[in-house]
Write a protein that binds this DNA or RNA. Sequence first.
DNA 1: CCTACCGATCGGTAGG
DNA 2: CCTACCGATCGGTAGG
Lengths: 237, 237
Amino acid sequence: MEASVARTRSPAPPGPPAGAVAVAGKRPRGRPRKTVQDRDDGNRRQEVLRSAAKLFRRKGFHATSTRDIAAAAGMRSGSPFYHFKSKGALLYAVMEEGMRVAIARQERLLADLLESARPGESAPDAAGRLRLLIRNHFDILLGPGSDFIPVMLYEARSITARQRALLAQLQSGYEAPWAPVLQALCACGRLRTDVKLARLLVFGALNWSVQWYDRRKGASLDELTDAAMHLFLGEPQ
Amino acid sequence: MEASVARTRSPAPPGPPAGAVAVAGKRPRGRPRKTVQDRDDGNRRQEVLRSAAKLFRRKGFHATSTRDIAAAAGMRSGSPFYHFKSKGALLYAVMEEGMRVAIARQERLLADLLESARPGESAPDAAGRLRLLIRNHFDILLGPGSDFIPVMLYEARSITARQRALLAQLQSGYEAPWAPVLQALCACGRLRTDVKLARLLVFGALNWSVQWYDRRKGASLDELTDAAMHLFLGEPQ
DNA sequence: CCTACCGATCGGTAGG
DNA sequence: CCTACCGATCGGTAGG
């Protein structure tokens, strides 16, 4: 399965490596840099991260070897350990990166929504905000480049308790904007369930889509969003 | 972690082993039976199956070694292979056993429900049947002895395509009674979504509970069922 | 079902 | 980031 290894290293950029200063303190051994391989460090690290996310999602953490990841990133078997100190650290990095991107996207979309309300117009209603949150969540789970969050969702058993606690903080940051929206929908009678259980059940319905959704056939993410909205919310009164 | 191994073999039953004839054809090698260990085969096999289900659920398939399973069943490391020809076969057996039990329970409950309708009375309504299906589903996912179906749900990647196809047949047997119920609820306007997507989203909401439900605190399975019913169904008209 | 064992694979590292 | 390597673990099996 090693195949022809096809080294797809990007052409060496001219001049001193851009990321060299930033990561200088992280070198495992105090060896003078300058060799060819040291250039473009940030990109190589990202490539390992992306390859790992893809493989962890498709095959699972324990079924993926660090050699698989190295090969997918066009490296030799020991090289991922230059960027990450262990396989577990790599898994955690995938999850953390996924959460940071997800939170950033969600906050940006919410800010855009508020801004788009012309002055004098009332703020977007709770149902509209819920639709945006759900639509973005599907994008993060199922859209292009969406390997990181599914790995986080389905490999929680494989990280340490300390790492889980750190992730939980990020997760509550992600979930924070959902609470007032669900609360408002409860108050106006369009959500007919205890808010806490509703949140868990709703996230379940969405997160489970990772198991069955096929981008190449069936509903679009917009149609999925519509279906979810109709399933969860009663008629407006 | 091997610890004291605490061999908890059950006392040897008197007389010829009950299961000996039934499994005679399955012996890996044509060796004369009679040794002490051969007694009570069915129970030992079930013990391996239960231990495997428990460990696969808690740690995942690939993070569980056959040695772990053997120890949990009070055996030596090679002995699980006397009952199952490979680790993968053991995983599949866990899933299949889970589906058979789940289907049997569901059919029994539905039969009971129909029977309990006194003669002359109309059949139970669709909402009542959905409640029963959901309540039973929670039981299978979260109730006592509920390791088998969660393993099936969360280890699908670890079985072969052929095994997945076989399981899919059992799964459609399980899902069969859900379709007419959801259909009826759609027709009367209490479910406001395309039936196919509604089914996927509903199962997602239920199945995800494996990730967060804690039997020792929080809602009971009845309360969970109520929350799900209210979330999915609009007011009766 | 146990004993004793094998070959393969895996995460990880020293040194450059 | 590569080369060369190590120790540990794992699934599985022969033979009784």
